[in-house]
Nucleic acid binder design. Structure first.
Lengths: 218, 218
DNA sequence: TGACAATACGTAGGATTCCTATACAAATAA
DNA sequence: TTATTTGTATAGGAATCCTACGTATTGTCA
């Protein structure tokens, strides 16, 4: 029996390839899901983002940062959604330059319809055990946090960034964390990636919370 | 202390959002990496794919399936790469309709240059422990396999699909698997996502191997 | 206050992706 | 031989997506 050749790509690269494969499937699904409601993937992504953020409205620049595209591209797509009556633009009273882009009720129902469509990716994730799903979520949170710190993506509205996050304050292993906003205990499977009640934590406190949070795994 | 509200999105959805966030970062990076060598992300993706597959050449349809785009779109991008001298087209001797698209040496060096660029995503994955990386890879493999079975993506050249894969035949916990092609033991951290020596396994044998492979986690 | 820079968004212009529908040629089946 | 299927290419068009630049508002600093 010989040794495995050294031409195996590094583990990190293979994970990257794996992520790309899943992303490809998600993009393909996004085309069909968006098409079913008369949109395209970018428009659906914007609309989903706006619905998640509520009626307060988001600025064009924030949307662009979230999508990872340029601001003019976002203007294009927002205008397309505007023509379809799925979003509205209101000028920000505190800054006459800025806009508040928000989903209309028609936009909200469009997102709901798209979400009800079958998704092979969701099925594939659902086939994992609960524990595997939980691990996967935590791994992704760690990666996302690094990407955020590197400036590759904007600040995410995750529990682990939030000023209300209190990691490992309870003895119950299924719900060791605590959210000081709703005053409730919760576990790793409930960690949020994009929370409506999120409030940015102070840098030092965030670092401390992160160290406490990750100590569980070590 | 109250209970956590029920408005938390399902775990599966939050994993989906997390995957999207990582995919966004990867796409942004792909733009800059591709731009550095005078390409766009789609072209770089095709070129990377062709380099991984070697000089044998791939058909347009296979490339399209891999990318998750339509065949005419692939023809467009392949022609763009052709004009730049990074790929060549040769007619398949066994089928006069078909083409063998392969990367030229110039194309190979372009992929190398792009790969040497800094990647925030790779750094973020590298920040995980070896064990976490290994777990993440296995989770992704499970998801990819499901996507493949659902027809959302084409058959992947993964160890777990391969006729030469012999899971859990060794006692060494760091290298329990065996590759009958190179006749070597290897561990979960060496599992490949896109192997050059891959050969599709027979359906029943593949199922059996999968059950043996996943029994480790259970 | 007044000049200047920074910011938020829009428009212009153009390259390219990406789609569906269709045409063509070669292989396969009837 | 004829019909169907398969592998690409082409046609046509919508939309993404970019870089530049313009306009208006806000912020900064002498």
């Amino acid at each position: 029996m010989s040794k495995l050749p050294d031409d195996t790509p590094p583990l990190i690269d293979r994970i990257g390839v794996g992520l790309s494969r899943v992303a490809t499937a998600m993009r393909t699904e996004a085309w069909t899901a968006a098409d079913a409601i008369g949109l395209n993937p970018t428009q659906l992504q914007i609309l989903t983002f706006l619905v998640a953020r509520g009626r307060a409205g988001m600025r064009v620049k924030q949307i662009a940062a979230y999508l990872g595209v340029s601001q003019p591209t976002t203007t294009d797509s927002v205008n397309a959604l505007l023509r379809k009556g799925l979003v509205d633009k209101q000028s920000d009273p505190t800054d006459a330059r800025a806009l508040a882009v928000a989903a209309t009720p028609a936009g909200e129902s469009a997102v709901r319809r798209a979400g009800e469509l079958a998704s092979a990716t969701e099925d594939a994730i659902a086939a994992l055990s609960k524990l595997e799903q939980q691990d996967l979520l935590v791994h992704l949170l760690k990666i996302i946090r690094r990407l955020q710190m590197a400036g590759a993506i904007p600040e995410q509205r995750m529990c682990v960034n939030c000023r209300y996050f209190r990691p490992h304050v309870h003895d119950d292993p299924s719900a060791p964390h605590h959210c000081a906003f709703v005053d409730a205990a919760f576990g790793p499977a409930e960690l949020r990636v994009d929370c409506g009640e999120y409030e940015s934590g102070e840098e030092g406190a965030r670092e401390t919370a992160w160290r406490v949070f990750t100590r569980e795994a070590g």
